[in-house]
């Protein structure tokens, strides 16, 4: 579904990502693991087109590397940025509406809003509150629901567990697994290695801008040496 070939990202003279290649099959849940500053966010930002990147990005067999972010999203590839990037000065309902900005089927949109308010009941309670007043976990739920409103086929999540209490982290991964069951292909950036490997099918390990390892989630989970070397816990 997604095939990234030798993607590099530079910030001025600093090379954040060095010729990274990954592949994701339809319906897979792939985790992208690595320490802070390893280049995880650079990789998915490059795939989403938010930062300038060299290399090839094939999505559903079409080269999208030259397209602006907006067009990639319109083709069904989207990204939920890390942490608090909800539209803080808009209400929850307005956030969700903007999530569906590219859709023309009003009824479908209304149904989807109902669906995600059902999945995240707390959002229904806070429907008319400003998103900036939500807690960290609620904002994360909103960000995911908002991304889902565009009906992406591939969703990239940047650190969905960042800053959340451990109990909520587990809950968040349950939600993410629900998305996979709904047929969405997932690429999830995580520092919370164990949680991610518990739910993912496959994982890439990245450090210093280079993809170091790739493998099945359960194999990686038992590979203490690898985890110690790159993931540090």
């Amino acid at each position: 579904m997604l095939s990234v070939n030798r993607l590099s990202v530079h910030y001025g003279p600093i090379r954040a990502l060095d010729a990274a290649s990954i592949r994701i099959g339809r319906g897979e849940f792939v985790a992208l693991l690595g320490p802070n500053g390893a280049g995880k966010t650079s990789l998915i930002s490059g795939i989403a087109g938010l930062v300038r990147a060299q290399g090839r990005v094939l999505f559903e067999d079409r080269e999208i590397g030259a397209l602006p972010t907006e067009d990639r999203v319109r083709r069904g590839l989207t990204m939920t940025p890390e942490g608090r990037h909800v539209f803080a000065n808009l209400t929850v309902a307005e956030n969700l509406r903007l999530g569906a900005a590219i859709r023309r089927d009003r009824e479908g949109v209304a149904q989807d809003i109902e669906k995600y308010l059902g999945l995240f009941p707390i959002l229904r309670e806070r429907n008319h509150q400003l998103a900036g007043t939500l807690s960290g976990g609620e904002q994360q739920m909103l960000a995911i629901a908002r991304s889902m409103m565009s009906r992406p086929r591939l969703l990239m999540l940047d650190e969905p567990s960042l800053g959340l209490a451990p109990r909520i982290v587990a809950q968040m991964f349950d939600y993410i697994s629900l998305l996979k069951e709904a047929g969405v292909t997932l690429l999830v950036v995580e520092q919370n290695v164990m949680q991610a490997l518990k739910h993912a099918d496959r994982a890439y390990v990245i450090s210093s801008g280079i993809i170091r390892h790739e493998g099945k989630a359960e194999e990686l989970r038992s590979d203490r040496r690898l985890i110690d070397m790159y993931l540090g816990n």
Partner: peptide
């Protein structure tokens, strides 16, 4: 929608683009 996008863009311009809004 565009009005909402303008308000949203005051703080989160690239996130607005992630909604597929040009």
């Amino acid at each position: 929608t565009l009005g909402l996008a303008i308000r949203a863009a005051t703080r989160e311009f690239s996130t607005v683009r992630l909604m597929g809004i040009r």
